[in-house]
Design a protein around this nucleic acid. Structure first.
Lengths: 100, 100
DNA sequence: GACACATTCAGCCGCGCGGCTGAATAATCA
DNA sequence: TGATTATTCAGCCGCGCGGCTGAATGTGTC
């Protein structure tokens, strides 16, 4: 059980760090955050020079990592940032404060 | 000047997050840390199943990101972790604590 | 100097990431 | 219903990452 949790956590680190590795995805997170924490897919896509479809995939990667979530609202989807999930990065960094 | 600094910082985020994206490289950092902060290349390579050369490249990526540094000591190279550099990740995360 | 050891350099190769385009789905409006 | 808007799904493709092997470099030991 504890073992499985630890495994799950390792996997979480993996997808989270991978998600954060791409500059466009980091910008997406910052963009949503500075827009008050939520934005529609269209608004997000409009910020970037890429084709929307490209941004869509980035959104999916971020959502797969649990860093954002979405909710249908009429015909648009509103993406919301999941700040708690970012805490995991802090948790990982905390290892380096812990004396060995 | 301030502009250039901000640009430099953006680039730093880029290479740091890219460096941290690979699980092997994160493990390298943790391994060095829990070994007291420094290890020889051979000791590090021995931890991994990969060919040494593969680990060498990971070390170079980490060094390029400023997350580790090395120092020649006789015929071996000792790698040392640069904890300060990891702070930049915290700095980036701090944006999300800042209310927009 | 000759040899062994520690590590890196150079270069090959497969696979997945991230860009694109074109079609599909879902909801709203006339 | 049919047209329009918002968004995603499906699939193509080029390029770089990350694995490998083989050779080179540098430094102690005899």
């Amino acid at each position: 059980m504890a073992k499985r949790d630890s495994k799950a956590r390792l996997d979480a680190y993996e997808i989270i760090f991978t998600a954060l590795a791409h500059p466009a995805r980091r910008r997406v997170l910052l963009t949503i955050h500075f827009n008050g924490g939520s934005m529609t897919a269209g608004e997000i896509a409009a910020v970037f020079a890429h084709a929307w479809q490209t941004t869509t995939r980035h959104l999916q990667v971020l959502e797969g990592a649990g860093l954002i979530s979405h909710e249908k609202q009429g015909r648009m989807r509103v993406y919301r940032i999941e700040r708690k999930r970012l805490e995991l990065v802090k948790d990982w960094l905390a290892w380096f404060s812990r004396k060995p």
